[in-house]
Structure formats: C-alpha cells, structure tokens
Write a protein that binds this DNA or RNA. Sequence first.
DNA 1: CTGAAAGCGCTTACAG
DNA 2: CTGAAAGCGCTTACAG
Lengths: 422, 422
Amino acid sequence: MQNRCLFRARSAGERFCRKPAGLNRLRGRGHDAPSFLWPEKFLHFPANSVDMKAITFYNEGKDRESLKLLCEKEVIYFLKCVTGYLSKKSQILMKRLVGKMATIRDVAKLAGVSVATVSRVLNNRGYVHQDTRKKVEEAILSLDYKPNAVARSLFKKTSKSVGFIIPDITNPFFPQLVRSVEMVMKRAGYTILLFNSDEILENELKSIDLMVSKYVDGFLVVSNTLKKEHISELSLPVVCLDRVIGEEIPSVSVDNYAGARKAVRHLLERGCRNIAHIRGPAKVRTAEERLRGYRDEIRANGLKPYIVPGNYDLNTAMENALELFEKHPEIDGVFAGNDVMAVGAMKAASKLGIPIPGRLKIIGFDGIEWGTAVTPELTTMEQPISELGKKAGELLLELINGGKLRTSHYVFEAKLIVREST
Amino acid sequence: MQNRCLFRARSAGERFCRKPAGLNRLRGRGHDAPSFLWPEKFLHFPANSVDMKAITFYNEGKDRESLKLLCEKEVIYFLKCVTGYLSKKSQILMKRLVGKMATIRDVAKLAGVSVATVSRVLNNRGYVHQDTRKKVEEAILSLDYKPNAVARSLFKKTSKSVGFIIPDITNPFFPQLVRSVEMVMKRAGYTILLFNSDEILENELKSIDLMVSKYVDGFLVVSNTLKKEHISELSLPVVCLDRVIGEEIPSVSVDNYAGARKAVRHLLERGCRNIAHIRGPAKVRTAEERLRGYRDEIRANGLKPYIVPGNYDLNTAMENALELFEKHPEIDGVFAGNDVMAVGAMKAASKLGIPIPGRLKIIGFDGIEWGTAVTPELTTMEQPISELGKKAGELLLELINGGKLRTSHYVFEAKLIVREST
DNA sequence: CTGAAAGCGCTTACAG
DNA sequence: CTGAAAGCGCTTACAG
C-alpha cells in the first residue's frame, strides 16, 4: 500500500501565512493525488511532531480517526492539498473536525463552476442554467455550505441586524417591547443587538459607535439623554421609542399627557377629591408629561395637587407614599406615574391598613403584567406596548428599505383598564 | 476665478462601478487639482442633471452649501477626485454629508503613510516610530476615523459579539439574567445578540446558524430542546445556562433538586402537613428536578403528595390552584415550581378567602422582583440570578480566550428567603 | 448563460 | 521601523 501521508509537522508556536519556506517541494504522494500540490491555503495548529499514528490511520483509510488524532495533537495539515483529492465525504468530515466552514470557493470547485455562478444561485439573481443551478445546489447541500454573513456585510455595507438601546431590560416595561420589536425584525431577517444604557449618555454613544462600525442597518432607541445632534449626523435610520427626541427623528410613543388626564378623570369619576400623584424621575420626558397631565386635570377641576417624588421604582414610591398617607390622611386617590410605583403605593396603604379601593383608589400607568399579580388587581392606563414595538419595528424596516429618512411621529393612546384598585 | 466644478450628472437610475465610459477624459480643473484624476472610487446617486447652483456655490468656496445641495439633488460626484484636493475640513464635511465613513486608506493618505502602518498604530502591535504614530493619530482624530468592525471580523474570523438564546425575555426570570450577562460581556468588549426561542428547536437552530455565519465568538443558551449533537459539532464555545444539556457542554445552573427539598422542608418546619406542589411544564428540566425534590422530601416524611400541573405562568397556576384548594381544603402548604405560579396560588387563595400565611403557606422558586410586589410578600427559594449570568459570561469569556473547550459545570445553591407568605 | 477580475476595509508575514 | 502585497469570503459590472 502506498503512503498517503499528507501531513507535515512544524515546531510549536510557529505561524505562517503564505509561501512557507520549503513547501514548494511538497508533493502529493497518493496514487490519486494531483501531480503538483502547492498549498493554496492551510490551517495551522501549533504542532509538536508528525503524528505517525495518524498517518497510519490515514493510510489504512480510517480518515475519521486520523483526522481526529491530528486535530487533538494540533498538527498542521494542508487543507487544500488534502481536499484536493479526498472523497467528498472526507472533505466535509475534515472541515467539520477542524471547525472550518465551507466557502463559496469550495462549492464552486465541487460543482465545477465559478464562484460568480454560485453567488448567482445563492442570491437568485441573474441567469443561471437549470442544470448548473442543480449542480450548485447539490454541492451546497453536500458541503452543508452556509454563506458567510460577515463577508457579505463587508461588500454590501449592511448587516441584516439592527440595534436596540434601552435603559434597562430589568424594568418590566421593556421585555415586552424588546420581544415585539424582535418579532417584526426577525420576520424580516434581522438580528437584534441589545444595549442597556442605564440612561447614561456615554453608554449610548459608545453603543452607537459600535453599531455603526458593525454596519447595523439602523437602530431603535429609548432615551432621554440622547439629543438629535448625536443622531442626525449618522445618516442611519433611527426610530425613537417611547420618547420623542426631536422633530427630525421618527418616533413611536404614547400620549402620556392625555393618558394622565384620563387617569385622573377616572379617579374623579370614582368620587375621589384629594388626588395625589407619585411622579416619575425628573428630566424623564414621560414622567414630565404625565405630571403635566395630572396638574392640568387637577387644576381644571379646581382641586389641590399633591405631588410626591418617585423614581419609577418600587421602594422609593412606597416610602414616599407612606409619608404622604400619614401626613395627608385626606388623600383618597393616587395616580402613580407608572405601575411599579402604583404597586409601591398599594403596599404603603396595606401597611397602614388603608383599604383599597374602599378608602383609597389607586391607578397606575403602563399596563405591565405585575398589575394582575397583585391583590387587588391594579387599575391602570395601559400602553399598547406590543403595538409600540411592532410599529417602531415596521417603521425602521420601512426606513431601511426606503433609504430616504422620512420623518414621522406615531402617537398611540393609553387605554384605561379598570380592575380592582379603583 | 477658475471653475472648480468636480461634479458630473448622469441620467436617473444609472449605476456603475468601475471604468464608467467616458470618465477617463475627466480631469480636475481646480488650480490645486492633481493633474490626472482617474476616479478610483465614487458614489452614485440617481441623478437628474448637473446642479448649476451647487457648482456656483462650490466655485464661490461655499463647500457646505454646495455639497448639501448635491446630496439633496442626488447627483453623482466623485468622492476620490474631490477628496484628492479638497481641504481636510471639506473632506470630513463631505464624508459626513454622504454618510460615508473614513477608511484606513483615508487615514493613511492624510498621514502620508501606508495602511499597514496605520493598522499597526491602531492595534498597537509592531514597531512604529513615535513621530509616525503621532501623525497617524492626528489623522485619525481629524477624520473621526473608526475602524470598521466588519472588515476586521472577516479577517480575524471573530466578531467581538456573542449570542444569547433564551426562551422568552418576557418571562421575568430572564431580564436580570440578560442584564448580568451583558454586563460581563460588555466589559470585555463584546456585544450581545439576543434571540427569543420560545423553546422551539427550529428557532434555536436557525439562531445558531445565523450566529455562526456572523462569526459570533461563542454563545450562551437556555434551552431544553437543544441536544448536545446540535452544539458539539460547532467548534464554537457554548455555555448552557440554567439547564444542563450534556456532560460535554459547560454549564452554569442551580441545584433545583436540593432547593426544592429545602423549600418543602421550610414548609414542614412551619408546621404544614398537607403540602401541594404546582409543577412546571413537563419536559422542562428545572421543573422536573423541582418536582423530584418535592416528591422525595414529601416521601421522606411519610406525607402524601399533591401535585397539580402548571406551566410556569400565572393563569394556569391560579386556575389549577383554585380547583386544588376547593377539592382539598386540607391543603396547608404550597410549594410552587416558580414565583409566578406562587403568585397565582396566592391569588387563588385570596379569591377563596383563605388567609396567608394563616391557614395556608406558600413558597415559590426563583426570587424574581414580583415576590416583593405582592401582599403578603412571597417567601421563595432565591436563585442567584445575577451570579448565574455573571459566571456564565465569565466562563464563556474564558473559553473564548482559552480556545480549548474545557468542560465544567457550575452549580449554585438556591437560597431560602423568608418573607411574609410562610 | 458564465467566468475573470476588482473591490468591500481591514490584518499580517515578509522583505526591505 | 515601514510598505507592498496577499488574503479574509463574498458580490457585481463587464466582457464574452
């Protein structure tokens, strides 16, 4: 039996890329080897020595064992030399073992056509003869070839991915938003890069730089800190979610002002006269708008406003509500800036033994799932979160496909969901 | 004044890439233009006509106005021709207006060095003379150059990004997990690609294909459906989270069995004798383990098991608990497979007027924030979610950097958090 | 209908 | 210390 050895050892740590010295003397020695075997391409594993056992295996036709051993031993081998006259099955096997993906050239070679042709059938563009197409498709299948997205990106300057900057996924408002955005984008073949910004401008800017360098096709952002200057120079489709950044940047949001007024009106209709508002954090647009809505509605009814600070989180709201209820036992209604704070207020009331909705009625804002978990269930101004996400995703897609950035602002209505707390 | 016109109109929709007919006759006409201006590279905008106003502006030295007009009018212009002898300031301006990023070649040209040298200072590798480095850094700054991550990826076969497949971000267990993973990965310079799988194998496999084609450096996965065959052939670092997939795949999880026994033991210590278990979905490993823990602990104490199905969600659990409580009024303790279902059980009890913890004690599993929102606050077996995520991220990073996939399984303990429901 | 070649924007081994 | 050149894996306009 002839020696089918194709492998060659190098000293450990050695690396080279092209024209390694001495390699031009390398020839195939198998009876089916091409006469001249200049290695076009090869992989490198820091090697110690020729692995005789592997060679023996290989000579005995036990490809799998041989290759496995070589991979384990980290021996250099010359991929192209080998694939040049290995059986198709072994070729695939080898690539797998080595974690090397088949490329368009492999497919072309196997199908006996040019890479251009393969590309054409891949992209279904231009003319390809039926028979040629068939050959190519077979090659693709047998090599389990998957086009390399990175290479495609580099040429097309597009990556089939979009970024999504949110303040904090841990805030129960966002998971649903992310989910609905992902759904639309995935359907269109886009991947989501998720960034939590903690509302810190620097983080947002860093994320944007990263996205740009990765050729994202656009991004969605929920932010108060970001200004239009940061975005408008980007010449990249951007859609703002939940909060409007500027006239020029398309956005999808909810009418917080109207929603707040409606919430207060609901409490009024339920007979409340001393209505407090637990407000969200200063400088957060949604919080400001809800506060304004509360103020205007209270004023319009000639009532006295009670405003306590909150931070859109449970504990601050609970503590401040506790203080409020103790200082102002006349309070009979609370409009909380969001559901989480509403739950905080409910806990405060429960601690003081104030029955809900008997002596105190509470309404929140957002419509997150928490509201149905608590007892009594929370009345709230529900935001159509999924629709927000869906719309934003669709808008972004439209911008990406249309190219030109049209400016448009979509405003959804918050919807009163009456449950047990009012 | 000389005509500094550099722009040339084409008919609408026309596209070309190289050697457009007639262009070899194009010359620069500005006094500072190079003598021969073969366009190496240019951008195309479907154009209508030469914009004389833009040319006038340009001739008057009003670069900004000129360029703006041309961009608006979508006129072809020859980037390289122009950048060839435009002032540095105008160059930057132009690129910005056109949404074209500076490349390494622009930097090289501006600094008067080769791209290799620029690359060297960029990557801080190899020798670069101080003065050269300075020149390059200045060019980088003045062009606001950012290296293109995609091109780098293509060469390096690495993308500084990792995937994260989870069942559903909407499940309150995952946001915190995602957050903590993101934190470790971001610190190391990695971006997260998020995939919601809905536990559907096909989705998971699709996501994996996508990730591979995008050269992710590894990924994290929470899945029951994925088998080791799907992963082990990938030669890509993978870490399983929350659920173990196989001996070979490194994992980070919680000892659900022990946690479940501890939970039941806690109820026993609190005096419960008829303890029910609302189990999680069949075939979900965590659910099975918790069930087994419950069963063994109950059996070890010679008690009778009560097991009702649940689906890790609120409503199913509530309905089934309702039925259970009505059929078995002797039940005095509930161990729910997760917190969400525990809240469901609480709601059921509250509907039937069963006082908690007076006549019924409830304990959950997970330690999600919900538990503190409800009244009474939920006793639970808290999983160290953030630590899980952190550990998983670190493990993945280690695998990515180490290259070799070592197998290791980290198991955390669930911790009893006694609150008001027991 | 098909292939050769140039190019996307980087990095690296090699040869000065 | 620096530059020319090849290559990562694709796509596309052009020339058959």
